[in-house]
């Protein structure tokens, strides 16, 4: 059965509106809408798609929406699902940003955000530890991690340059390793 574009848009609109944070956080909603409710994909397919979304550039949630939309209705489906996923962010954030712009001169708001910044720093440390436990695990990965911090923070390299260097480094190491075996 042909999936309606409107159904794709609405399903991803719902996922975008009810997911806090990207990445893992979207999996339960994805399961409910895409697997249980509409039967557009099996659980294995969704996990595969999500894995591809992780190793391609851009936002994982968006990549996943694009891929499922494409599989159901081609390019139009990909675009419609992606727009559905980002619509809630556009509406909510624009409303909040315009609200905040109106109160930004208030001393109370400035103090609140000074406190919020401290909480955000702690939350980012938490995320970094979670990520590092999975990916900074042996000597080469520790060296790559340190090189990335030193190049950007101390030597002023742009993140784009560092990402490009890392890709080259990974390809060369992979090529050398395969040559040996």
């Amino acid at each position: 059965m042909r999936v309606r574009l409107a159904a794709l848009y609405l399903a991803f609109l719902k996922i975008g509106a009810l997911t806090f944070g990207g990445g893992y956080a979207m999996l339960p909603m994805l399961q409910r809408e895409v697997i249980d409710k509409h039967g557009w994909a099996t659980a294995e397919e969704v996990l595969d798609i999500w894995a591809i979304g992780q190793c391609t550039p851009g936002i994982i949630a968006v990549n996943t929406a694009t891929m499922i939309g494409y599989r159901k209705r081609g390019i139009a489906g990909a675009i419609v699902a992606t727009l559905g996923e980002v619509t809630p962010s556009l509406l909510i954030i624009t409303a909040l940003a315009s609200l905040l712009a109106r109160v930004q001169d208030s001393v109370w708001v400035a103090r609140a955000f000074a406190g919020i910044r401290i909480a955000v720093c702690a939350l980012i440390v938490q995320s970094i530890i979670t990520l590092a436990r999975k990916s900074v695990v042996d000597l080469p990965s520790i060296l790559l991690f340190l090189a990335s911090v030193v190049l950007t923070f101390l030597l002023g390299f742009t993140p784009i340059a560092v990402v490009t260097l890392a890709i080259f480094c990974g390809l060369i190491v992979g090529w050398v390793r395969r040559g040996r075996s």
Partner: peptide, 13 residues
């Protein structure tokens, strides 16, 4: 293999 730890480094930056 190289990107994963590098991205953690970028977030640390």
């Amino acid at each position: 293999w190289a990107l994963r730890p590098t991205v953690v480094g970028l977030i640390t930056f």
